Simulated scan of single mutants.
Amino acid sequence: MVSAERVFELLDEKEEIPDPENPRVIEFPRGEVKFQYVKFGYKEDVTLTEDMNLDVRQGQTIAIVGLTGAGKTTLVNLLMRFYEIQEGKITIDGINITDLK
């Protein structure tokens, strides 16, 4: 029964947002990353992050530290679009990551 429940949960998941037909390419990346008013939760009705802003400028080095479960890996997963945000935007060198492949 447990396995069947997991299969049905998987089948009920929303489909991923497809890559754009003509994705933009960053030919000479500078490394500027911005999270602007990002809202995210693994489930739509449970928000983990709301109005999160992060600005990493070219050449800047930052450290993401925190206890286990604080969200360090989630930040990277959002940047890589392993998860989609509910609101706001994430940009690399001024280009929205939803416009990239």
Rank of each mutant, 00 (worst) to 15 (best):
D51Q: 09
T73K: 08
T73I: 02
T61K: 13
T49D: 11
R30K: 12
G59H: 06
V65P: 06
N22A: 04
V46L: 07
D93L: 07
R6C: 06
V2R: 13
I85S: 01
E50T: 11
I90E: 08
Q60H: 11
E27K: 08
R30G: 07
D12E: 15
T47P: 09
D12F: 02
N22S: 11
G71P: 08
F40Q: 07
I26H: 07
T61L: 14
E13I: 05
K43R: 12
P23W: 00
E50Q: 12
T68I: 14
E16I: 13
N77K: 09
D55C: 04
E44R: 15
T47G: 10
D55V: 10
D45E: 13
V65A: 04
D45V: 07
L78N: 02
I85C: 12
K39I: 11
K43M: 06
E87D: 05
Q58G: 12
L67S: 08
K34L: 07
N22E: 11
D93F: 09
I64G: 05
V25A: 02
L10P: 00
E84K: 02
L75G: 04
E16R: 13
V38L: 04
L11A: 03
L48R: 07
R30A: 06
Q86W: 01
P29V: 01
V65M: 08
M1G: 15
F35R: 10
T61D: 10
Q86V: 08
P29M: 05
A70C: 14
G88E: 10
V25E: 13
F40T: 12
E50V: 13
R6M: 12
I85T: 11
L11Q: 05
V65C: 10
E13H: 13
K34D: 06
E9A: 04
I26W: 03
T47C: 13
P23H: 00
D45W: 10
K89Q: 13
K39R: 15
I17Y: 05
G59C: 11
D51I: 11
E44A: 12
